[in-house]
Nucleic acid binder design. Sequence first.
RNA 1: GGGGCGAUGGCGGAAUCGGCAGACGCAAUGGACUUAAAAUCCAUCGGUGGCAACACCGUGAGGGUUCGACCCCCUCUCGCCCCACCA
Length: 794
Amino acid sequence: MAEFQAEDFSEKQKIYVLTEFPYPSGSGLHIGHAFTYTGGDVYARFQRMQGRNVLFPIGWDAFGLPTENYAIRTGQKPQDVTKTNTENYREQMNALGFSFDWSRVVNTTDPTYYKWTQWIFVKLFEQGLAYKAEMPINWCPSCKVGLANEEVINGHCERCGTEVTRRRISQWVVRITQYADRLIAGLEQTEFIEKVKAAQVNWIGRSQGAQIRFQVNDRDDSLEIFTTRPDTLWGCTFMVIAPEHALVPEVMDRPEVAEYVEGSRKRSELERTEASRPKEGVFSGLTARHPATNRELPIWISDFVLPSYGTGAIMAVPAHDDRDHQFALRYGLPIQPVILPDADAEWDFSKAAYTGMEGRVVNSGPIDGLSPSDAIPVSIDWLASQGLGERAVSYHLRDWIFSRQHYWGEPIPMIYCRECGWNPVPEDQLPVLLPEVERYEPTDTGESPLANIPGWVDVPCPRCGGPGRRETDTMPNWAGSDWYFLRYCDPHNDGALADMDKLRYWMPVDVYIGGDEHNTLHLLYSRFIYQFLHDLGVVPPEYPEPYRRRLSHGVILGPDGQRMSKSRGNVIVPQEYVDQYGADSVRVYLLFMGPYDATMAWNERALLGVRRFLDRFHRFVRDHAGQGEESGPGVRAAVNRLGKDVAEDTASFKYNTAIAHMMETLNRLQDLAESGGDQRERVAEHELRTFSQILAPYAPFTAESCWQLAGGENSVHKTSWPVYDPALELEELVTIAIQVNGKLRGTVDVPHQTAEAEIRRLAESQPGIAKFLHDREVTKVIYVPMRTMNFVVK
RNA sequence: GGGGCGAUGGCGGAAUCGGCAGACGCAAUGGACUUAAAAUCCAUCGGUGGCAACACCGUGAGGGUUCGACCCCCUCUCGCCCCACCA
């Protein structure tokens, strides 16, 4: 398949078409893969025919829990399972005719690849962007294993269905929040569609507000809170802190506090973040002083306050926040209105909080009489002048928990020494290879299975040479997919993750095709890692962002219109349909179903319709091959036009209409070639070959066969896209719509460049139109050249 | 609650910049070929009225702008997707 290899530094214009690489599961390629890669393949093939140097690579995102589980179940090595699966994937991809550059395959589980994944981690650590912290993880008490968020389905373990609880474990965390503002700002340099940009901005969730200090009574401590509504400060009647807050251990001697905190700890993340759960809490026994009014404010503890957002503490303003209002009603805490709504002067604050921004601030000292939006900056300035607080920004985005307690992942290349602390494995000792072990079962303690291999764990400290201990956690699945697109540019490089000149040639990715489900996490993580590498200077400084465009493909539902799932039994396996109808039918059908980004149900009858079209074309070519003379004018014009239409649609990913154009043109050619009488036209091999070329990106096998039948030499896939001849189109008649008062009353067919006056004469002479003009006064005639003419009459 | 998107025949969907609504395909109906079936081919296929020519209505609902609106503006209804106790 050497024919599809991309050429480094070619003089041709480059284009980098990237599709998300698959996780090679045991069940083989699924329909979503077929859909994604067909979309990428058509575009790549089309661009090659346009004379571009196309990089269309593929690889394997092969680390992951299913392989590890399967290996445990069957007693195989994950390495061997991966090998079997990737070979199967490759075979099925070839059956579908994907024109990947197989010389650039990347495999995240290959030590020559994950050496660089580990290298990136070492750099993160060296730059202070990776740190150890006690973080709660999702814990399956039955499997005795920590689960990533994506392995928790509705609060239950993906594997065994047991309800997941929380457990605190010391983990590696990556400081992605440090890049939050840049990740937002960088979006401006991309051409992502609005939806994707919005998803990213939303996920980062930047809010502006104020940080305010409250003095805790009878103690030295002060309580810091974050709020986006400092204008409601004077309405604060109590405070709430999370059970994880640093103040809590100091009041654990109160039995009711201890009981509440204990109960909360047992609650799963799912339960805890359930918004409809009644707001419950416990009084801490502490009070704080209102910074403006000196009023005494009780400090409550409740787990509706999240430890991981803001400061883990809030000022409660029950008059103007729904949650605080619920809490106040439950425990009989005072409600103090400080904003009167414009619309409803009689607002009943005992019934509901007023959270709107329209209104007037009252009972609030220096900000009285202002509108809430004006009051926000004024209140912050006032707080700052009193030394009580300042402007602050908070993000929904959290630092990224980077440890997984699994075997089948990249070992985190760190060594712990009692004397020197954490040190990275020196670069010349990378990669830290995954040891081959007999058993992959998780440990009872929640540690990675690697912790059970003393010969691997115990190593000298790279700094002092004393006894050290390897990190036994592995990296999350995201790690390998964060930078794979860089490796495709230079997949065999031993001395760097990729050569700078090659990156400069191929980057950025021109089109990245993937699923909506990766529009937030994967896209954000990989943009972050790219920006980090940009700061390190190992990617071209002139490209601040890795992806120019992001295209999200749609979803194929089962024949019943439901999402495909094994339990519903509506899963479509592409290979079965390839066997039955041929790869081209499956390819063309997938793209013909609807717009590339739509959600569509599988319909085997429609697939059959596509098969009929391909068969009909093949028959047509066979029946008309050998008629070596020139085609009739209608045939020439139709095929000429087709090349232009399909090129336009393909370039803008409107595959469904491109295919419709091909069907339409075949219908037209059949009419012209097979009708009786004077209209009948000859179809010569030249047009049959041109049509085959146009079909080639979509149905590569059928097109090749037809190309040969029509006397084509070599391979249709090595030809250039047919050149459009505008002169041919000018020979065709144009149909112009004739309206009277905006209503269609007829049409006239005229040659191109017919004068307006002539069109008007033809229209007025047509009885079906004339009868609407008869006896009326034409006040105006609007003419849109070569499209429509509208008579305005009284 | 926040954000994004959408609503067109029996179905999936077309319609470049506001200019012939329903391309293309599926399903359906009638017919040809066949002993029969499959395959293939021909015809019809938004609604109402009409033998027909033709006329009127029609892009979720209501209003507006315009010579002309699926497309632009306002109000509303419904649906899908993502995020969500985020202070």
